[in-house]
Design a protein around this nucleic acid. Structure first.
Length: 224
DNA sequence: GCGACAG
DNA sequence: ATCTTGTCGC
């Protein structure tokens, strides 16, 4: 990646420019190898948001048993602004990945992929940075129009923007609010939704993300 | 100018 | 995201 894109102390205008430049590099078609390790990524906060906690939990596929997990606590340097989430959470997430020994074959990130105003949600940003296939798993909508999917687990409807399908609104549990799945990098909409559904066993969120979610939000429980 | 708005 | 108990439903 270009040197200019390796900084995180940017203002909104600069961040916007970075997003537009990086969005051109996002691959929206399947380009995955054999998937043996899936990483779930999520962040939590402490001290009223002044500290960001990023968690990565890697699970084996198939089986979804935990292989490894890391947790990083980093000072927060960017405010939460819809559309600029990656600039707030990526520093901590990258710190968590540096502690990781495993090389995940697929990343499931809490947040959007290309279902973003400039097609660069956090899953795209992370997927590009680590050069890994990545999927955005959002718990709510940022952009796009959709029709509510059926009430049963597995049903989904397309998430559309300007006549183009950018993701899927997927029900991962019967009668529970659907997830907003979109490609992050090196994967298409259908495969992205497929992987999320295949990893959704016990909760609304796919196992790897659920585990990362719990690790990132648990206060003073466990050493790191 | 008025809403919408990932975590 | 986070502050927080009980409570309704499968």
């Amino acid at each position: 990646m270009p040197r200019a894109l390796h900084r995180w102390d940017l203002d909104i205008a600069e961040a916007r420019t970075v997003q537009t430049r990086l969005a051109a590099r996002v691959e929206t078609h399947d380009r995955l190898g054999q998937v043996r390790a899936i990483a779930g990524v999520d962040c939590g906060f402490e001290d009223d948001g002044r500290l960001t906690r990023a968690a990565v939990v890697v699970m084996r596929w198939p089986g979804l048993d935990v292989i490894e997990s890391t947790l990083a606590r980093v000072p927060t340097t960017f405010p939460y602004i819809p559309g600029y989430l990656s600039f707030r959470e990526m520093p901590a997430i990258l710190a968590a990945f540096k502690q990781l020994e495993t090389r995940p074959d697929l990343l499931l990130c809490d947040g959007q992929g290309i279902a973003h105003p400039r097609r660069l949600g956090i899953a795209c940003h992370l997927g590009l940075w680590l050069d890994r296939p990545a999927v955005g798993v959002g718990k709510s909508r940022l952009v796009g129009a959709f029709e509510p999917p059926g009430e049963e687990k597995g049903s989904s409807t397309p998430l559309v923007v300007h006549d183009e399908t950018i993701g899927a609104v997927l029900r991962t549990r019967d009668r529970v609010r659907p997830l907003f799945v979109s490609p992050g990098h090196r994967i298409g909409v259908d495969s992205a939704a497929r992987w999320v559904l295949d990893c959704a066993i016990r909760y609304r969120l796919p196992e790897p993300v659920h585990a990362a979610d719990r690790l990132a939000s648990s206060k003073s429980c466990g050493r790191n």
